[in-house]
């Protein structure tokens, strides 16, 4: 019995099972809850694969981002009529059939490559936890410490993509804040139909969106 395989099976079962649960439930808050569990189990898989920095990043950003989804789910669907929304039966059947066919295709492709199957000694020597934070940070600064420069495998750094994605993130956040804000200020709050949210609710929501927009820059620079 290999511990690594046991833990992998456990986390993989949780990740896949709750991903399926996301598909099959129609209550939006439960969906978000199952999604959180699935994403957390996936970060466990990352830890098992030796990518501990990415695993922690996944926990912090992805799961935190899903938390925001959850909150929006609650905010937008607190009325009972939105909590359950089902598609028609034929749509579900068609989607399920197509999904199953695609899954069979992908799985057979994954199993079909011989070098992708499990290799014994490598997977067993896992006692030493990996050190990935510094190499990743150096990679983002443009220096690669993995790979052997002598056999022509001197790998490229990621300084330019890192800068691009930082600017991109900033633009996206400004844009998202603008998108969410214009509608509420220039839009017709006074012309809300009866049953729409009231003034303070709208203000609360502006505050929420601003807060969310301000939260995400923390995702931008990995603190290494």
């Amino acid at each position: 019995m290999i511990w690594h395989s046991v833990l992998f099976t456990l986390f993989a079962a949780i990740a896949c099972g709750f991903a399926m649960a996301v598909v099959f439930t129609s209550n939006v808050v439960r969906m978000a809850f199952y999604l959180v569990i699935s994403l957390s189990a996936t970060s466990g898989l990352f830890f098992l694969a030796g990518a501990d920095f990415v695993g922690a990043m996944q926990l912090m950003i992805y799961v935190g981002g899903t938390l925001v989804l959850l909150i929006f789910g609650v905010m937008l669907t607190a009325q009972q009529r939105f909590v359950q929304m089902r598609p028609s039966r034929s749509e579900v059947l068609l989607a399920g059939l197509l999904g199953a066919a695609l899954l069979v295709l992908l799985a057979s492709a994954a199993v079909g490559v011989p070098t992708w199957r499990g290799s014994g000694p490598k997977a067993a020597a896992l006692d030493e936890p990996p050190l990935t934070a510094t190499p990743i940070a150096l990679g983002l600064l443009g220096f690669r410490v993995d790979g052997d420069p002598d056999d022509g495998q001197n790998r490229a750094g990621y300084l330019l993509p890192f800068e691009i994605i930082s600017v991109h993130l900033l633009v996206v956040l400004v844009g998202a804040a603008y998108l969410a804000r214009t509608r509420l200020t220039a839009g017709s709050l006074a012309q809300q139909p009866p049953g729409g949210f009231e003034q303070d609710a709208a203000e609360d929501r502006i505050a929420e969106v601003e807060a969310i927009a301000a939260d995400s820059p923390g995702t931008e620079g990995p603190p290494t």
């Binding site: 957390s40 501990d52 926990l59 912090m60 799961v63 938390l67 050190l131 603190p223």
Partner: peptide, 18 residues
């Protein structure tokens, strides 16, 4: 002992709000 312990602790602690 984790190489990314600070990050890990903050990330896991963030799950508590759920």
């Amino acid at each position: 002992r984790l190489d990314i312990a600070v990050f890990f602790v903050l990330a896991v602690l963030g799950l508590e709000v759920f």
